[in-house]
Design a protein around this nucleic acid. Structure first.
Lengths: 142, 142
DNA sequence: CTGACTGCAAAAGGTTTGCAAAAAG
DNA sequence: CTTTTTGCAAACCTTTTGCAGTCAG
């Protein structure tokens, strides 16, 4: 799995550095993570790595297609491995819980956007806000 | 249309203030607007209004259901009138353009989320990231 | 009058940038 | 050896908060 990430970078004219390797590993390990969380993870191994390096590295990794990010809440974005199965985030605006559903569930929707307006959806990057089942239930009682 | 917004506020135990009226009007006039843009609009009439008041006011207006917000790009959220027709934002991650589609287009998708996981989608608050038709076309040439 | 609301200034995230030193190829 | 990349510190932008004065009810 962690095969040719270095080739991908090199092919795009980027250099291979320990920082880039560590950030990529951290993204893979954490699954969903903010830049700050990635920093913490990376610093377990290399304490001297700086937050700005995390940001610059994520930008590069995303550019070459090794990671993606999504905006989940109001705060920091979260980064995902592209090796992970594509998924869509359902964000509960009441309790802030985030649940993921398989990207295929949105197959029809994505197809509709393509047919109707020629829009190519980045499934991993879709945030659906609303209320989760438990909050809907809780509210029904009032 | 600008009927009983004051009654709505009062019913929720909030007071009626010029600032609240102005912010609500600004949201209705601008359609899509960030807090900063709303401040500018409001200050055309009342120059002394403060940005923090905009934020606090939007929080109140949203709480009572007079406005909604969505996260469009990486930056500031944009606020919408609830009188506006519900729509979904398609955000192009390449050229940053934002296009809106009618909420009904997502009817099936919303229904699927309700059936499958009991999630009640806030349609106005959904951001779909990806590439718009023109950027897809442009990229195909390379 | 009394509590809610506002303006102001300061603090608190989160992200970006300039620059000199360090490292990759 | 040349160019990219990094660490550090400072700047930046957006949003939040504490507080004292003001205003709505």
């Amino acid at each position: 799995m962690a095969r040719d990430w270095d080739a991908v970078l090199r092919d795009h004219g980027f250099r291979i550095t320990p920082q880039r390797q560590l950030v990529l590993e951290a993204v893979n390990v954490l699954g969903h993570a903010t830049p700050e969380e990635l920093l913490n993870e990376v610093q377990k191994t290399a304490g001297a790595v700086n937050l700005s390096t995390i940001y610059r590295t994520l930008e590069v990794l995303e550019q070459v297609g090794l990671v993606t990010h999504a905006h989940i809440g109001h705060g920091a974005p979260t980064y995902h491995s592209v090796e992970e199965e594509a998924h869509i985030h359902l964000v509960c605006d009441t309790c802030q819980a985030v649940q993921s559903i398989h990207a295929e569930s949105a197959e029809l929707f994505v197809q509709m956007l393509r047919d109707k307006v020629g829009f190519e959806t980045d499934v991993a990057h879709v945030s659906v806000h609303g209320q989760c089942a438990s909050c809907v239930g809780r509210q029904a009682l009032l």
